[in-house]
Every structure is written in C-alpha cells, then in structure tokens.
C-alpha cells in the first residue's frame, strides 16, 4: 500500500496536470439533460491526503465521485486522475484505484471470501495472489470468521467492511469512498473510521463524501463544502471553522411561545458579545468568542431558556453559515 512513484507518470501527465496532484479538476461539470449535477468545480487532491466532499444529499458529491472513478463521463471542464484523462485511460485508471460505492454491490451469489477473490481476478491478479490478498484483507476488516458465509446474512457494518476490503484488493494508491458510513450504528462507524485511518497512515490517498460533519472532522485533512452542485468553501476543518464560524456556540432552547417574542431582542441584548445569531426551528444558536459570557448576558436580561449549552464550533456551523441550512434535515 505504499505510494507508487509511477502514478505520476501517466501518459497525459506532462500536458494535463500538475505533477503533485493525484486528482486535478478545473471547471468540472456534469449535466443530466437540463439538470446540472456538478457546476464548474475546481479542486486538487495531493498524494497521501484525506480529502472530503461535505454536503447534503443532492449536492453533487456522488456525481463527482463517479466522474473520478471513470464510470461517468464529464460534460465539460478538465479532469485528470493519476495524471490521466478518464475518457481515454479509464481502464488504466480504474486498475489503480479502489471504489467503495454508496450502495453495496457485493456479489450475493458467492461467499465472503470468493467476493474478494473474484474481484481480484477482475484486476488480473493470479488466482493464488488473489486468495492470499483476500485472506489478508479479511483479517484487516475483521471478517475472517465469516469467510465462508454468504453475503446476505451479514450486518450493514460487515457489508461495508467487506466492500472496503474488496476495494483494496488491487492495492490502490487512491481510494474513493462514497458515504462510507451512512446508515451504520456508532460502533460500526468507529470501527470503520479506525480502518480508514490505518490506510491513511500507510500512505493511501482517501477521497470521501459525507454528510456527517463529525466524519469529515475525524477523517479529512482537507475538504470542500458542496451545495447545489457548487463548491462553496474549502480548507482544513480547522481553517473552515476559524474562517466561517466563531470559536464557541451558545445553543439556547426556549418554550415555543416565547420564541416569537424574541425577534431582534437577542441581537440587541447580546450586542458586542455575539458575532451572529441563528434561529433554527428547535433552537437558537448564538455565535460568540466567549459563549459563557453570552449565556450570562442572556440570563441577566431576564430571559429563561429551557436549556442552554456552550460548545465549540463544528463544520455543521460552517455549513449553516455558508448555505443558511442545516446539513441533515
């Protein structure tokens, strides 16, 4: 799984992409008829980093991933993956990347181990080598005991782990993960994050999409926020939070009959102590450098919220700021 120096020297490298980018996109656009799924986005992914696309469902993340994975032609713009053009070098690119699709596509007609072995064969691995890697990967994703089981009775988390094992059978230098933990329980997610973290430590470049801000914060060195087919911001999780949110957030919940009467009142009494006040259906968010001071001010003004909580800013707040909407409706 070590970085392969050859991947920079694809046939198109010299003409198309900076030597340093594994993925290079400029003005990348995908349209389905009149509908624009991806609207002229620019990004670069460097070797060894974990890069994320954060955004709500329908933001264009999956369409972008499919273009990178060479299973969906771009409509416009420039895209090179491993220094090569997907339209021309699709089979060559796909030979060197791993793909974890959003929807499980495991082969229901064969066992857990055979799923890995036959996938290795698709990459032209000799049978013995495919079997050796299959056993290694089953161990890596902790499914060795289920090797002879069929796929159907596996839990959601196990299926995801098997899909990740499958995506690694060709020892890819670039791994694409589309919503890797959607629908999993917290325990299964943490196990999966742990495996992905180990891959990253071994030098595998990870590109993932997610609509979970905690996942993005846990896994991504750098991410772009996507909304309505466009990239609206980019940077490390820390940079994004520093740039688009305050250090702390005061979350206030009021009885529903009081909320109406608060219009403008909060902003007035917090004047100078809060950078911004955001009203959500179920709570009010006060963005402030010092959340505690803001809470004291609210109470001093005689307001009695049902609950108040001071926390650090997260990517969720960044998204709210950038789009005016919550990430998960």
């Amino acid at each position: 799984m070590t970085a392969d120096p050859r991947y920079h020297r694809g046939p198109m490298a010299q003409a198309q992409s900076p030597e340093s980018s594994l993925i290079h996109a400029r003005g990348l656009t995908k349209r389905f008829g009149d509908f624009t799924a991806v609207d002229a986005i620019d990004f670069d992914v460097a070797p060894g980093e974990a890069f994320g696309f954060l955004g709500p469902n329908g933001a264009g993340k999956t369409s972008t991933m499919r273009m990178i994975g060479c299973v969906s032609p771009k409509t416009e713009g420039t895209l090179t993956v491993l220094g090569m053009e997907p339209a021309t070098y699709g089979p060559l690119i796909r030979a060197r990347i791993g793909v974890v699709p959003q929807e499980d596509t495991l082969d229901q007609e064969m066992t857990v181990r055979d799923n890995l072995v036959i996938y290795g064969r698709y990459f032209n691995l000799p049978r013995a080598e495919a079997r050796r890697r299959a056993d290694q990967l089953l161990d890596f994703v902790q499914l060795t005991e289920r090797a002879e089981s069929s796929v159907e009775p596996l839990s959601g988390g196990m299926k995801r782990r098997l899909t990740i094992a499958r995506s690694l059978i060709n020892e890819p230098s670039l791994l694409l993960l589309d919503e890797p933990t959607t629908g999993l329980d917290p325990q299964a997610r943490h196990l999966l994050w742990d495996r992905l973290y180990r891959l990253k430590q071994r030098g595998t470049t990870l590109v993932l999409t997610t609509h979970y801000m905690d996942e993005a914060e846990q896994l991504c060195d750098r991410l772009v926020v996507m909304d309505k087919a466009r990239i609206v911001a980019g940077g490390s999780p820390r940079e994004l939070i520093d740039q688009y949110s305050s250090r702390e957030v005061l979350e206030l919940r009021f009885a529903s009959d009081i909320v109406e009467s608060l219009d403008g009142q909060l902003e007035q009494l917090l004047d100078g102590r809060a950078e911004r006040v955001e009203r959500l259906p179920d709570r009010v968010l006060v963005y402030a450098a010092d959340g505690e001071a803001a809470a004291v001010a609210v109470h001093a003004a005689g307001l009695r919220p049902e609950s108040s909580l001071v926390r650090r800013s997260t990517l969720e707040d960044v998204f709210l700021r950038l789009t005016g909407r919550s990430l998960i409706e």
């Binding site: 994975g69 299973v71 699709g90 089979p91 060559l92 796909r94 030979a95 793909v99 699709p101 929807e103 596509t105 495991l106 082969d107 996938y119 698709y122 990459f123 032209n124 499958r166 060709n170």
Partner: peptide, 9 residues
Amino acid sequence: NAVLATPLG
C-alpha cells in the same frame, strides 16, 4: 456496477 469499477468495460 461493481464490475465496471474495475478495468473491465
């Protein structure tokens, strides 16, 4: 779908 993510077309 799974097969087309590999070098096969």
